[in-house]
Amino acid sequence: MIAPRRFLPSISSLLALEAVERLGTATAAASELALTHSAVSRQLKFLEEQIGVTLFQRQGRSLTLTPAGAEYARAIRDNLQGIAQASLKVKAGGSRSSLSLAILPAFGLHWLTPRLRDFSARHPDVVVNLGTRLAPFDFSHDRFDAAIHFGMRDWPGCGYLPLAHERVIPACAPAMPRVRQVAGLLDLPLLHLESRPGAWERWFDRQGCRADNLGGMIFDQFLHMAEAAALGLGVALLPEFLAESEFRAGRLVTAWPDYTPTEGTYYLVWPAGRPVGRPLQLLLDWLGPGARV
Rank of each mutant, 00 (worst) to 15 (best):
A135T: 14
A211M: 10
H123V: 07
T25G: 06
Y72R: 13
Y160V: 08
E227N: 07
F56Q: 08
Y266C: 01
L112C: 01
A121R: 15
P239C: 03
A121T: 13
A30N: 03
L80N: 04
I148S: 11
P156S: 11
T265R: 08
N213G: 14
G108Q: 02
T265S: 09
V127F: 01
A147Y: 04
R96Q: 10
S62D: 13
R274W: 12
E166P: 00
G215W: 07
E201T: 10
L35I: 07
C209K: 08
R115M: 06
L238Y: 00
P275K: 10
R42S: 02
W256M: 03
L23A: 04
L238P: 00
T260L: 08
L134G: 07
A29R: 08
L186C: 06
Y72G: 01
V128L: 01
V293W: 13
A228W: 02
L130W: 06
M217N: 10
Q207E: 14
P170S: 09
L35G: 02
Q181T: 12
R77A: 15
L284P: 06
W155D: 02
D220V: 11
A84H: 14
G159S: 07
E227S: 12
R42M: 08
L214D: 04
T36Q: 05
N79K: 15
S87A: 15
P279W: 12
A29P: 07
K45C: 03
G264L: 09
R274G: 01
G208H: 00
P189V: 09
Q57W: 11
A26W: 10
L191T: 01
T27C: 13
S87C: 05
V127L: 11
H141E: 14
H192Q: 11
H123Y: 14
E32H: 13
F139P: 00
G131A: 15
T36W: 05
R206P: 00
Q81K: 06
T113I: 08
L287S: 05
G94V: 02
G215Q: 15
V182T: 10
Q50I: 05
V40M: 05
L287W: 09
A183D: 15
S13Y: 05
E18G: 01
T64P: 00
M225V: 01
A26F: 09
A39F: 04
H165G: 12
K91D: 14
V168F: 07
P271A: 07
A16L: 04
S12N: 13
A146C: 10
A229C: 01
V235L: 09
L283E: 03
G184N: 13
